[in-house]
Every structure is written in structure tokens, then in C-alpha cells.
Write a protein that binds this DNA or RNA. Structure first.
Lengths: 245, 245
DNA sequence: TGGATTTTTGACCGATGGTCATTTTATGAT
DNA sequence: ATCATAAAATGACCATCGGTCAAAAATCCA
């Protein structure tokens, strides 16, 4: 029987190697997409053999899903930080909106990867553990926003009818994802004269919040000041692109 | 020199064969996604050889893009039909919203294909002509909605500030695409207790229209009656799922 | 130190997108 | 009808890549 201490070290080394693989895989995904690189190249990059890669991941798709989950957890981290903002429920919701922009700015490759995951074959080839991990990461994001909306309804900041808290959450997530997807479209951007897609994301979030009747409405409050506070208290290093000159 | 009459017939035959290929490719895409079928299988299905397929399409990606464009043009057709609805500008916008649901119901495979197109490598491997054709089809959808919103602003149905007609168009397209993408997510649907995703799409569209201040607002008008008219006048065969019992 | 166990490796396999020399078919003049 | 020429269809073939596994290397422990 092996001593516990060495087996612990092994586990740590294994974990570190997995991180190394994920780092390089992410870089390749960002640089080349999914098809334009192969497992052999990744093996060379991390200085292990192809066979070793397959001890960590059951398929190329499984590996990509792991990359996506890691980034999605960073998104959830940002959301949870944002949710700690002290202010009205709508201000907290706004903080999450800003968090989604900070995230998009820090991880511009994420949405491409996430779109890739919508393609059918990924979920067939990925291992159950990774699928579950990804669902957990997604649920973290969802829950953070959902909790704020439940508070908003409880406090009377948002009217009850005719949508449930779940519907309201889904609406805000939908406008955020949709705006990012549309903002990625190069044609549409030049066609619609949209130079800063992240600004559009925020504007669209405002529209939905107003549509939900989430008080105080856009015209009832100085949200530029709120933005200043959010940025300085939670995302100080993101001021440059969140607060336009 | 070949007589003009035979060359015309050839062109017609060629076009017919391309349609045949596209039909089968679409079926395979719907049944198996992108990876789980190959060009040889498609060749057998259409009873031509693989080489002949490559006289029509420069790559598998090019072929899939052509499938997507054909469906996207059907979407534009529906939008243009909807835009002919006689009523207030918001009612016309609503008709387009319903059209997007009719489309999603008739072509449930489209969004999977469209998500696939977001993956980088497609655009590198597709031919310039197909890329342009796809952009044109997308622009048709965009323009139809845009024109209505321009009218709405001109007529005073929608306030001017702080969004341009382009922004408003983008917001509505974003909520529509985003809602469909989120609605596709099986986890989220069970998590949020959303049984009918198309209903959520419409509700979310309403939220954005209200957020834009598009008159008459949801609570100022009986839109259930409008829906009845839209369905009976424009989408009579879609009544079953557009108007819940 | 040496034998047992675990881990790593890369040659190898099957499948697939894409090519192109060869074969087949269509055409039109005689 | 026949034939020469041009056009089109074909499928054998190639290179590539995801994934496997027997052999080699490294590690461990008595």
C-alpha cells in the first residue's frame, strides 16, 4: 500500500497537469477555433504524449467542455461579487449586468466556445461528470440573478404580474446572451452602426428591466452614478471601458 | 456552340439537383447534427457520387451554410408576410414576433444550425458567394423589422430617446435570438419550470417593446385580440400553438 | 537492488473530407 | 446511324485526425 503522502502529491501533480492542458487548449481554441488544431499539436504544446491527454479527457469534445466550464465558473464568480453590491435590488441587478460586460471583456473567446457547445455532438461525446460540472456552473450564474429578483419581488421593487421570478430571470439572461451573440455578428454591427457592442448589451438590459417594471426605472434614477459606485467598489480595474469618457 | 435551349435545360437540371442535395443535407443535419454523417453517405442518399457534390459546394461547411441560408430566407419570407399586417406599428412588430415563433415551430432545426455557424471555422471554409448570400438573407429579416420601427418613431409610437432605430431593432432581435437560445437549453427549462419556450419568447418580446416605450403598451391594449387577428389573417394554420386554449 | 506496479508513450487503426485521372455520357456534324 | 469531341460523373486514392493499446519507461517498495 502506498503511503498517503505520496499519493496526495500525485493527485496534486495530476491536477496541475490538467490545468496546464486546459490552459493550452483554451489558447488554441481562442486562436484557431475547434477544427484547426489537433490533439497531437496540443500534446506537443504541453510536452506530454497524446495518450496522456486521454487519461484526463475522454475526447476532444470532453476537453473543450472542461475549458468552457472553467470559464463559466469565472463568470459565476463575477456575478457573485456583483451581487454583494449594497444598493437597491435594481442596482444589484445592474451590477450583475456590468459583471457580464466585465466578463465579456476579460474573456472575449467565451461566447464562441459556448456557441460551439450548442452543436449537438458535443453532449454525446462528453463525459457525464463534465456535463454535470457545466450544468452546476451555469446554475451558479442563474441562481445569483434569480435570488436578487426574488428579493425585488418580495420588496415590491418589481410588480408580480404576469411573470414569475423564473420568467424574469430568463428574460434578463436571454437579453444578455442574445445581445452578446448579435454583437458578435460583424455584418450586423457595421450595418447597424454599433461601434461598442458592450454598450448595447447594457442598454438592452435596461430595456428589459424597465419592461419588467423594476423600480426605480431608468428615468427615475441616476444610474450613471450607480455605475460609478459599482465600478469603483467592485470592478475598479474595468473603469476604462465600463464608464465611457 | 451549343444551342441555347439545351444549355437552359442543363442549368435547370443543375439547379434541381442542388435542391435535392440541400434537401437531403438538411435532413441529415436535423437528424444527426454536423459530425455524425459524411459526404459519402449524402452522395449515396442523393444517388450521385461524392465528386459531383463537390461540383456544387466547395466544402461540407459551404454546403451547410447553403442549407442555413435557404432556411433563413424562409424566415425572411415570414417576416415580410407579417409586416403586411394592417394595424398599429406595435401590432405590426408583434406580427413579426409571432412570425419568429411560427418559424421556430416550422423549422425547429434552424437554431441548431445557426449556432453551428457561429463556430469560427465555418466562415473560413465557405465560399464568398455563399457568405454573401447568407448576409443578404439576414439583412432581409433585419430590414423588415427596422422599417416598422422607423415608422413607429416617425409616427410618434416610439419615443426618440435614448436609442436609435438601429438600436431598437437590435434589441428586439437580441431578445428573440437570446430567448430561443435559452429556450433550447434543456436544463434551464426544467430548472425554470418553462414548459412552452415559445410563450417565453413572446413574453420577452413584449418586455422589450414596453421597455422601448412602444405605444400602445402591453397594458394599454388588448393584444390577445390582435393575436387572434394576426393568426387568422396571416398564419391561419398556426393557430393551434400560437393561441393557447 | 530487483521485481512488481503504475504511468507514459507513439506506432497504429479506422474514418473522413477532399482531389483528380479515368470513365461515361451528351452533343452535334456528317 | 456513326463518330469525334467536349462535358460531366465517378470512385480509387491521399492526407489528416481522433482515439487505442501493447510495449517501454518510470516509480515504488521490500
Amino acid at each position: 500500500m502506498a503511503p498517503a503522502v505520496t499519493s496526495l502529491r500525485k493527485e496534486r501533480d495530476l491536477k496541475a497537469r490538467e490545468e496546464l492542458i486546459l490552459d493550452h487548449a483554451r489558447r488554441l481554441l481562442a486562436e484557431k477555433g475547434f477544427q484547426a488544431w489537433n490533439m497531437e499539436q496540443l500534446a506537443v504544446a504541453v510536452e506530454y504524449s497524446k495518450g496522456t491527454l486521454y487519461q484526463h479527457f475522454s475526447s476532444k469534445e470532453d476537453l473543450v467542455l472542461a475549458v468552457a466550464s472553467r470559464i463559466l465558473n469565472l463568470r459565476a464568480d463575477l456575478f457573485e461579487q456583483a451581487a454583494s453590491f449594497k444598493g437597491s435590488t435594481r442596482e444589484q441587478g445592474r451590477a450583475i449586468g456590468l459583471a457580464s460586460c466585465v466578463f465579456a471583456h476579460r474573456h472575449p473567446d467565451f461566447f464562441h466556445i459556448e456557441m460551439m457547445l450548442k452543436s449537438a455532438s458535443f453532449w454525446e461525446k462528453a463525459s457525464p461528470e463534465r456535463k454535470e460540472a457545466h450544468a452546476r456552473a451555469g446554475a451558479r450564474c442563474w441562481r445569483t440573478l434569480y435570488n436578487i429578483i426574488v428579493s425585488a419581488i418580495a420588496l415590491g421593487d418589481m410588480p408580480r404580474l404576469p411573470w414569475s421570478a423564473e420568467h424574469a430571470t430568463m428574460a434578463l439572461i436571454s437579453i444578455t446572451i442574445g445581445s452578446h451573440v448579435v454583437g458578435m455578428e460583424h455584418n450586423l454591427r457595421v450595418f447597424a452602426g454599433i461601434d461598442n457592442p458592450l454598450l448595447s448589451v447594457r442598454l438592452n438590459q435596461d430595456l428589459v428591466c424597465d419592461g419588467l417594471g423594476w423600480k426605480p426605472l431608468l428615468h427615475e434614477h441616476n444610474y450613471a452614478a450607480t455605475d460609478q459606485r459599482i465600478v469603483s467598489e467592485i470592478f475598479p480595474d474595468a473603469a476604462a471601458f465600463l464608464i465611457p469618457a
